[in-house]
Amino acid sequence: MDTNMQIIRVDETQWQAVTDDAVVGHGDFSPRPAPDGRRYVSIDVWDDAAFAPLAAAMLTALPAPLRTLVAGDDAALASHWERAGFVPERQEWEYVLSTAGRDPRPAPGVAVLPAGTADEARLRLLDREIRAEVEASSGWYSMPAEVRPGPPGDTLIDPSLYAVAVHEGRYAGLVRVVRTGRGPARIGLLAVRAAHQRQGIGRSLLAHALHALHETGTSTARAEVDRSRTAATALLEGFGAERTGHLLHLVHP
């Protein structure tokens, strides 16, 4: 570390690296809401020598585990984080989809309840069941979906964001769409219960979501998929999704 460099904690979430009264880097902490519990840090430097001391100061002050996101083509930044003790956790493809020309008719035997029309109690139960199934298999960390805090062991559900697929009389799958101002909407979560998979439910939900967005004047939607989830990748690419990049998720245990 440059002996003239100082690491200053500006507030609860920000640090600065200062050399000769000039700021040469800063670090930021962005806690995610429980029960997701993931906490993210980021560092931006104008002097590479500032990265390691900033990372060390943040790691000392903040509770583990900490995570960060790096563009998949930014090998230099990934190397900085790895030297600070972070290890790759997963990689995520980024996609953009056109909403035009989608046939909203669901697969035979499947009905889709538009966003805001599902029974909230049954939707909450479906959400808990899907989370438990994912956690028992690939792990919920592999799903690029934020959650909001709710009662212990539960999450808050806003029915206006979720369309639900009904199959054999049961709530079988859901898709959550988040609108982000004037930018593309985001397919924040698409999941189907294990007992109802391979029935065209995922395709029905995605087609419905894209058609609904098109009807309200939204021309594109974005989505992120863990590279290990081949079925989800195939679904998006089957809809003509354009791969725009990928993200590397790193964690400091």
Score class of each variant (00 low, 15 high):
R83S: 13
G116W: 09
H26P: 01
V24L: 08
A111G: 11
T68S: 14
T230D: 04
E89Q: 09
P104E: 06
M58Q: 09
P253E: 14
S160A: 15
R122Y: 05
F86P: 07
R122W: 07
W15R: 04
T220L: 12
R39N: 15
T216E: 14
L97T: 05
G200C: 08
A136Q: 05
H214V: 00
E120N: 05
T68C: 14
T216A: 07
L66M: 12
V147P: 00
A55P: 03
A57T: 08
T230N: 03
T218W: 06
Y95H: 02
A71H: 13
R124P: 03
L190N: 14
G240M: 02
H214P: 00
Q16Y: 10
A75Q: 15
L190S: 03
G139F: 07
T19H: 11
A136K: 02
W15F: 10
Q91G: 08
D20R: 06
H211T: 06
H252C: 15
W15P: 04
Y162W: 15
L66G: 06
H167E: 09
A57N: 05
E168M: 09
P104R: 07
A185V: 02
A172F: 13
P253H: 13
T19R: 15
W93E: 00
E224Y: 01
V177T: 15
A56K: 07
D103A: 10
W15C: 04
L235A: 00
A121Y: 02
A64F: 09
V166I: 12
S137D: 13
N4C: 03
P159T: 01
A115V: 00
R203G: 11
D103Q: 10
G139N: 02
H246E: 14
L206I: 05
G27Y: 08
P65L: 13
V251P: 06
L210V: 00
V23C: 12
P35W: 04
D47V: 09
P152W: 08
T13N: 14
V96G: 01
G116N: 10
H167Y: 13
S137L: 03
A231W: 01
A17Q: 08
R227M: 14
G169V: 10
V87D: 02
D2M: 12
T220R: 14
S42A: 15
L189R: 09
L113K: 11
R122E: 14
L69C: 07
D2S: 15
H246P: 01
M58P: 00
P108I: 05
I187R: 01
D119P: 03
E146W: 10
R186H: 11
S98H: 08
G27F: 09
H196W: 04
A61S: 11
Q16H: 15
R229I: 03
G150S: 06
R38N: 02
R38D: 02
F86Q: 04
G116P: 06
S160D: 14
A221W: 00
H252M: 08
P35H: 06
F86H: 05
G240L: 01
A52W: 07
A121M: 12
I43W: 01
T68V: 13
L156F: 12
A195C: 06
H246V: 00
L66N: 05
I130M: 12
E129F: 04
Y40N: 01
A145E: 12
V134D: 04
R105P: 02
W46E: 12
P53N: 09
G240V: 01
E215S: 10
G169M: 11
G183N: 07
T68H: 10
E237L: 05
G173Q: 09
A56Y: 00
E242G: 00
